[in-house]
Design a protein around this nucleic acid. Structure first.
Lengths: 360, 360
DNA sequence: ATGAAAGCGCTAACAA
DNA sequence: TTGTTAGCGCTTTCAT
């Protein structure tokens, strides 16, 4: 039993109605009903036009669209969500326990990529940082409450319970970066660490290096393991030696220490592949202190292509990660899941690019 | 004309109803009504409990809260928004035309700070990157449609029309970083560039430097102007000379070129204050090429404390910006605006910190 | 202090 | 093809 009588009057006089609590402007925004009246059709028809239903005649559609434009109508998201049960928004969760997000080479690029892809579909991006356990609970409730249609997960650490929680809720989700603990079957997007490492080591071999060491990443992380595997496979049986390998934690200090150790064991090494730019920076420092020239005496290749790679001395040859593409791909994968219910798309591995500067 | 009769049946049997389009789990989430029935009170009472109304007796409140817990009830945001006209979410807009956000030292920290502050209040953070003009329009419509209660603006560039558009709409907004074109009266949070520069130059003076040059930032940006002003004021009449100043665009290349020019004009300079770390890195490079030792011959101080400042050779003494605090402060300011309607809080200037490493 | 009832703006059967 | 109608889940007068 409509409130139509009342309404008819309203939009003909353009009265500034009540203006309740939260509205910023004095002008009341037009509703579906206003558009309908203006176009002389029913609410349903306007709704059909807005949602692109094919069951609308061309002329009616045109006139409705005209009215929409004339009134500056924009659908009310809340009302729509209430009835459709869709929120038209997805969450991007950064599950970084430390304050290390700054360091995370992924963050900025991924956000941009996701953002690009979503804006084309009109989906809203909700950002959520979960650090504490409290945060985790809050977020789980949040998802359970149906506040978003899908979840994008990045900076996930080892035993994070989030993937499990999400797949229990049954909400579409995609992981960015290495899903260390299996990720509970959720699809993920990552870069091809193995081939990245291969490209780096091939480059070293190609420029005539013979004794190529590596500073590997943590072996309990996918990135660490895969980059190491790529190194090993590319070197091949004949050239590989256990003693050419040192493992650190992706940090500058770690890289520094490893380089010293390697230098001690193999004073004659002529190249080193570091599994992260930070470690490469540490290696550079160690080499400098040891009086080796880079790349003349020892060539160095890093991984990540952080900004700092351009400013080390000498600038670092490194493996670039396509972070923006990664973000886009994550979003695309998620959108696929939304449409076709579960297990649609499989995980994606993105190619890397070797950026050659002066260190190798 | 309630649908109550029908409902009563539903929650007593916990039927898995329809499960429409978008719900992920088979289980229908409990509504206010379910809680009301469980607690043997009316919807209105439950609503009062949830919204912390004082007009509820203690025992009723307790039993309602018990029911809420028992049923795992979480309010439906859309329904609430529909009636209250509040969305309980704020937008964080990154208005970066280029792909430079990566470089932006603000981004990560600000996001984290904002996020921390908001999560305590249950507000949702919606992230929006606007680059193209199309994006700008989209966002303006978005805001006009009342999809968020407030807006946080960062990475704003010179003549960005966003501040004007926002204040026209009348939505609470806060700008992060330098509001170049005045920002249309919107409150902003920035760091105290002037005192930051003063700290840097004082340090240089304090360590006995006499001929201190500066590589200033763009003079059409607040940060550029203010850092320059701080430099000048600290040096004082007697020591300041126009020829000790070079202006660049905050980039590494710019810094490099300026350093060379300065060296040409003042071969005897013994210190340089660069208004950004990137420019400082460029200066370092130029000095190295010119055969000057840092800090022995020439001391260098930067500004920003980017990650790369730790990895230059030598590590850069620089002025750190409290980005996380900045984010928190922006959010806090916005929350103030929300409550007390307009012009409540005034802009905030945050203190910086001089981080002393090896370059000065 | 509590309940009844009227909508918020929209979509989706169901009719016509 | 178009209109009518019944809600989606919540807050909020207005009674009681």
């Amino acid at each position: 039993m409509g409130t139509d009588g009342q309404r008819e009057e309203r939009h003909s006089t353009v009265t500034v109605v009540s203006d309740g609590t939260g509205s910023h402007t004095g002008r009341a925004r037009p509703t579906l009903e206003d558009v309908a009246a203006h176009a002389q059709v029913s609410r349903a028809t306007v709704s059909r036009v807005i949602n692109g239903s094919p069951k609308v005649s061309e002329d009616v559609r045109a006139s409705v669209e005209e009215s929409i434009r004339a009134l500056g109508y924009v659908p009310n998201r809340a009302a729509r969500t209430l009835v459709t049960q869709r929120t038209d928004s997805v969450a991007l969760v950064v599950a970084e326990p430390d304050t290390r997000v700054f360091t995370d080479p992924f963050f900025g690029g991924i956000v941009r990529g996701v953002s690009q892809e979503l804006s084309e579909t009109g989906l809203q991006l909700v950002l959520s940082m979960v650090q504490t356990e409290e945060d985790h609970h809050r977020f789980e409730r949040y998802v359970q409450a149906g506040h978003v249609d899908g979840v994008l997960l990045i900076s996930l650490h080892a035993a994070d319970p989030l993937p499990t929680a999400l797949s229990r809720v049954g909400i579409p989700a995609v992981i960015g970066g290495q899903p260390l603990g299996g990720g509970d079957g959720l699809p993920y997007v990552d870069i091809d660490n193995r081939s990245g490492a291969r490209a780096a080591v091939s480059h070293l071999l190609g420029t005539g290096r013979e004794r190529i060491a590596t500073i590997a990443g943590p072996q309990d992380m996918c990135a660490g393991v895969d980059r190491m595997a790529g190194y090993r496979a590319t070197l091949g049986r004949s050239r590989f030696r256990r003693s050419l390998v040192e493992v650190a934690d992706f940090t500058e200090d770690g890289g520094h220490a490893c380089m010293r150790a390697l230098l001690d064991r193999h004073p004659d090494l002529d190249a080193v592949f570091a599994a992260s730019d930070l470690m490469a920076a540490g290696a550079l420092r160690a080499l400098r202190l040891a009086g080796r020239r880079v790349p003349d005496d020892v060539a160095v290749v890093g991984f990540d292509d952080l900004e700092l790679a351009r400013y080390t001395d000498p600038p670092l040859t490194t493996v670039r990660q396509p972070t923006v593409v990664m973000g886009r791909e994550m979003a695309r994968l998620l959108l696929g899941l939304q449409g076709l219910r579960q297990e649609t798309a499989r995980s994606v591995l993105l190619p890397t690019e070797l950026v050659i500067r002066e260190s190798a």
